[in-house]
């Protein structure tokens, strides 16, 4: 991969995030609504709704990462080329960080909207379950020794296929009062631009991090080869 990819995407992400922050805090209207009788709507969050733009953008990246990791793992198992494995691992590790953001901001959102830190809101539950799969993946990579790449690939594939089941399970289990149906679709005009720009900005950020992580995985591989050469030459013991 080109050396320029990380800086380019990093700069794009920085600019994008700056624009998104400006849009979210300076331009986007506060979110509130009224009941037909004139009373304030219970889902009016005013300033707190600004969490949404970044929370949901991160959640999108979490799902994208599960997908990328699953597809790259399939490619790895088919071709056995380590580059696919590197991408799958990088995407998953970055997704663990993004997932942590999703869970923390989601928890704060729950506190703001429903006054509890955690209420098993369907989408948040789904993020948590996916995040657990990703954490398991990272643990496997770390502790499964030489065959970690295969086992982790299997886990990524099974995890990706399991996403629709988690979705159905959580959806059936949901508490109707807590559901926020189609929030993204019902965003007001001033909010939509801010939202999609922050999604794009965090996509760039995600790509930059994944590519950086892939490069570090490459360096690890190189180091391993050098060590083997060193052992052959008798430099290392």
């Amino acid at each position: 991969m080109n050396k320029l990819v990380v800086p380019v995407f990093g700069v794009l992400a920085a600019v994008g995030i700056a624009v998104a922050v400006w849009l979210v805090f300076m331009q986007a209207p506060l979110q509130y609504g009224f009941h037909p009788d004139g009373a304030l709507n219970g889902s009016s969050l005013f300033y707190n709704q600004k969490i949404f733009y970044f929370h949901v953008a991160h959640a999108f990246m979490l799902f994208a990462a599960v997908f990328v990791s699953g597809v790259c793992s399939i490619a790895f198992l088919k071709t056995r080329k380590p580059k696919w494995d590197d991408v799958a691992m990088a995407a998953t590790e970055v997704a663990v960080a993004f997932g942590a953001v999703v869970l923390v901001t989601g928890s704060v959102w729950a506190k703001a909207a429903w006054d509890v830190w955690w209420n098993w809101e369907p989408r948040l539950t789904m993020s948590l379950l996916l995040w657990l799969v990703l954490l398991g993946y990272v643990l496997v990579r770390r502790f499964a020794g030489p065959s970690a790449d295969r086992i982790a690939a299997g886990m990524a594939i099974f995890g990706m296929v399991g996403v629709p089941f988690i979705y159905k399970m959580v959806g059936q289990d949901s508490h109707p009062a807590a559901g926020r149906e189609g929030v993204v679709a019902t965003l007001g005009p001033g909010m939509r631009a801010a939202f999609w720009i922050s999604v794009a900005a965090f996509l760039c950020w995600f790509v930059a991090l994944v590519v950086a992580r892939v490069q570090s995985a490459r360096a690890e591989r190189e180091l391993r080869e050098l060590r083997e050469r060193g052992l052959d030459l008798g430099v290392l013991s």
């Binding site: 379950l129 657990l132 799969v133 954490l135 398991g136 643990l139 496997v140 502790f143 499964a144 020794g145 065959s147 970690a148 295969r150 086992i151 299997g154 886990m155 099974f158 995890g159 399991g162 089941f165 988690i166 159905k168 399970m169």
Partner: peptide, 23 residues
Amino acid sequence: ATLLKVRSRDVLLPVILYPLLIP
């Protein structure tokens, strides 16, 4: 079966299985 040759298979098996089998 994939964990057969892994030293820490006893702890890794639930780590892999339970998240996948939650549904």
